[in-house]
């Protein structure tokens, strides 16, 4: 008994679908932060697991690309590993865990610590593309609010936070104003990462598969996190360094290490952590030998 031999088109999606997505991407580049509707296709994973990101990646990836996939900063989670393997198989692309070597980085919930460069593409998986969604449930109305640039409602959310907690308590998916025009949901990245989007040299693509929306931040675009004059946006801060590599000024995850609730704080970006740790070990070795 022979297994049926399946030949996939390059990047899994058929050429027409890739054209549809590329057209949406181009429109997104032309209107930074605007949510472009697109015909979201089925991909071999359930909706909500990054189907939007996978479709966007499939539309831009080629055999000469090097793909990195991160899930909450980690390269080694099930989802990240299987998406990497998927594109190795269907696009013939190489994959890497190193941020600086990748040409395309598909991400869920993080922007890498290593600064991105020109000619790199960051693809975000987006669960809910509409920043006004939980304040205004009607899609017809939110589209109108975007069209007429009426963003008072977004500030109501921030007002409520300050009234209740004394500061803006939203720490992820923190709304941003792109290019001075569209308010955009940056996908559930921590607000720690928000400043990295501003004037980033990389192209940032956002794909929401279930909600069928694509939006884009072109390179070197202004991305301003919203805030009040007397309560401006403040990204999260961490006082202690990473307990593995000793980095400061990075986003830390709390990891529970035993049954008594003890925890350690370590880098959420595994690639950054690994490279910093290796580098410091090498430094120590050099010092000792010198």
């Amino acid at each position: 008994m022979s297994a049926p031999h399946i030949v996939y088109n390059e990047g899994y999606l058929d050429e027409q679908t890739k054209r549809v997505i590329r057209r949406a991407l181009l429109k997104g580049v032309a209107i930074p932060g605007f949510q472009v509707p697109f015909a979201s296709r089925e991909v071999p994973m359930p909706r909500g697991w990054g189907t939007g990101g996978v479709q966007v990646t499939a539309a831009v990836i080629g055999a000469s690309d090097t793909l990195k996939v991160i899930d909450q900063g980690a390269d080694d989670t099930t989802n990240a590993v299987s998406i990497r393997a998927f594109f190795e198989k269907v696009a013939g692309a190489r994959s890497t865990t190193r941020t600086d070597e990748a040409t395309i980085i598909q991400t869920r919930h993080r922007i890498p610590e290593t600064p991105l460069a020109e000619k790199q593409i960051l693809v975000y998986q987006v669960p809910i593309p509409e920043p006004l969604r939980f304040l205004e449930p009607r899609e017809t109305e939110t589209r109108r609010l975007h069209a007429l640039e009426e963003y008072g409602l977004m500030y109501v959310k921030l007002y409520e936070d300050i009234a209740r907690y004394g500061h803006i308590a939203k720490t992820y998916d923190y709304p941003v104003l792109v290019n001075g025009r569209y308010v955009m949901a940056p996908s559930p990245i921590p607000s720690f990462d928000n400043p990295k989007m501003h004037q980033s040299p990389a192209l940032q693509l956002f794909g929401a598969g279930r909600e069928k929306r694509i939006y884009v931040i072109p390179p070197f675009t202004d991305v301003e996190s919203l805030g009040f004059e007397d309560f401006p946006f403040e990204p999260q801060r961490f006082d202690q360094p990473c307990e593995i590599c000793g980095s400061v000024g990075v986003y830390l995850d709390e990891v529970i290490i035993d049954d008594r609730g003890n925890a350690m704080f370590v880098c959420s970006d595994t690639d950054h952590c690994e490279r910093t740790a290796t580098a410091s070990v090498r430094d120590e070795t050099t010092e000792v030998s010198a």
Partner: peptide, 16 residues
């Protein structure tokens, strides 16, 4: 407070 403040925010007030 948010309900009463919303029209102000819609009119461009940005000082909490």
């Amino acid at each position: 407070g948010g309900n009463v403040g919303e029209p102000l925010m819609a009119n461009g007030w940005r000082h909490y």
